[in-house]
Amino acid sequence: MSEQNQQAVARYRNNFLKEVEDRVEDGEWVKMCMQCGVCAGSCPFGPHWEHSPQKIFMMIRAGKREEVLASDSMWMCTSCYNCIVRCPRKLPITHIMHGLAHYAHRLGMAPKGQPTREIARLFWNNLAKTGRVNELKFSLAMYFKDGFVQGIKNLLAMQGIGMGLMKARRLNPMEILGGHKCKDKDGIHKMIAKAREIEERKQGYAS
């Protein structure tokens, strides 16, 4: 259990709803759900995930902390906003889903190896490093995320497209050596650090 997770558990005991309200972006909306199921019926991912938003909200109220935070549902959300426009109670469902995903990730409870989570993580790490996305490194990291052998297989499969891109000068192989950076890399790092600090203060991790 991560330290932050331990701290959260200690603080909220069995009141997971309260925890979500305090710590998850837009979490204070969860109690307003009236369980109509419109979101569940609207989501294009309906059949492919473990729990519909409706269920996630009910589980939060029922105190099912582990199950909610480990659910893959929040990671499956494509931000289509279907649910938001349809929810009769005007819950910002998409935002709550992302808020929950983010929270689960911070606590280290998000499902391991969940592909969308993995992409998000790689993308962020790549971006945060230099303040610019290095497409070549990002693609390679993606190919090799499931191990070396799979990485080679992926590379071979994508070979044609890669060559095409290079020919069209859309992909520079030299980027592998460091690559472009933004002008003030340290500034970016400071900015990110500050944002995190504000967030921690706001959501009460500091205490």
């Binding site: 709803l17 109690k31 307003m32 009236m34 369980q35 009910m58 109220r61 029922a62 109670r89």
Partner: peptide, 14 residues
């Protein structure tokens, strides 16, 4: 009235 109770934190369980 129902909404008001929800915002007061009354839990509704089906």
């Amino acid at each position: 009235f129902y909404r008001s109770a929800q915002s007061k934190g009354v839990i509704f369980t089906k």
